[in-house]
């Protein structure tokens, strides 16, 4: 079995960066000083991934306030809406509101993606909200929103292509979160939208689900042809069999528990993985690790290495 490692969302900010954001807001640091501290934090996160023997690198998204924010700040025609709670967490997002003709501001995108700090030879992970989640959280009518947001997402990815070696993870918590689970009648729309997004490169795309079990959407996920991300805290191990023909990404680290995972804790999933036909697997945290303080989040990322070793054995 070939197992790769990656992360899946916004990483936790270091104490130094937290303090810098405070001092910057109070006017005690100028932008250049703040930027240096931020970039150092990104570099530290890159070193952590090297130590964890991760294959698909992320910049940690350490300046993202929420997953949807680049869509607001970097797209003409999108206005900043009110704050809402991010699922069942103590974090918040601002609702994107579409007010005009949409155009991605390429320069702004660079503010959010620090790919020039990632090792050149490594795969670079673009993490964005998926079109379904964007549509639901923006409160735009389905299926119209799917087309609007998939175009924005595609443009953002395109603007990053110059870095080379891109791997794309689209976070789609709304696909599995009970309140927002799509009706089966929408499955064909969703399939179309995703396949247009990854066109001829499904092997470079992950549709990553979390905050819910894949049970109700396994039929859709199993037909996508790209990688499918599963949150093991929410999805019972036997349900994995429903994705027998898929390429699986396992969210094995619990982003809301301070306990560092051991191979034994992930054991029940190992057993069911044997029934998956595709012998490629990616391991990652179930979602953003920003719900934990940095030192704990870092330990969890390092735990991926041990879990992989145990799985290979």
């Amino acid at each position: 079995m070939n197992i790769m490692l990656t992360v899946s969302g916004i990483h936790s900010r270091s104490r130094k960066l937290i303090e810098a954001t405070r001092r910057f807001e109070k006017g005690e640091l100028d932008y250049r000083e703040f930027e240096n501290i931020f970039l150092n934090d990104v570099k530290n996160f890159v070193r952590l991934q090297e130590k964890a023997e991760i294959e698909i690198f992320s910049d940690g998204m350490l300046n993202w306030h929420d997953l949807l924010r680049p869509l607001i700040e970097c797209v003409d025609g999108v206005k900043c809406g009110p704050y809402f709670r991010w699922f069942e967490t103590n974090t918040f997002y601002r609702q994107p509101i579409i007010v005009g003709k949409l155009a991605v501001k390429r320069e702004c995108i660079r503010k959010f993606f620090k790919f020039d700090l990632l090792p050149q030879e490594k795969k670079k992970l673009v993490i964005l909200p998926g079109p379904y989640t964007c549509t639901i959280l923006s409160k735009i009518k389905l299926p119209d929103g799917l087309n609007i947001f998939s175009k924005i997402i595609k443009d953002i990815i395109k603007s990053l292509e110059e870095y080379g070696g891109l791997f794309v993870l689209l976070q789609e918590p709304c696909l599995v979160y009970k309140k927002y689970c799509p009706d089966k009648r929408l499955f064909s729309n969703l399939k179309d939208v995703y396949s247009r997004l990854y066109s001829d490169r499904p092997e470079k795309y992950i549709i990553h689900t979390y905050f819910g079990s894949i049970e109700n959407v396994s039929e859709l996920l199993s037909e996508l042809g790209c990688w499918v991300g599963v949150d093991i805290i929410e999805t019972s191990s036997h349900i994995l069999k429903k994705l027998r023909k898929s390429k699986i990404v396992l969210g094995v680290l619990d982003s809301q528990s301070p306990i560092t995972e051991t191979p034994e804790m992930v054991n029940p999933y190992f057993r069911n993985i044997n029934e998956i036909e595709d012998k490629n697997l990616i391991l990652c945290p179930n979602t953003d690790l920003r719900y934990l303080p940095r030192n704990i989040a870092d330990k969890k990322v390092l735990a991926l290495k041990k879990i992989r070793r145990a799985m290979v054995k």
Partner: peptide, 14 residues
């Protein structure tokens, strides 16, 4: 355990 992000640049010591 340390500070975590809550809303934008606001944090709490979890």
């Amino acid at each position: 355990l340390g500070e975590v992000q809550s809303l934008d640049n606001r944090y709490y010591n979890i």
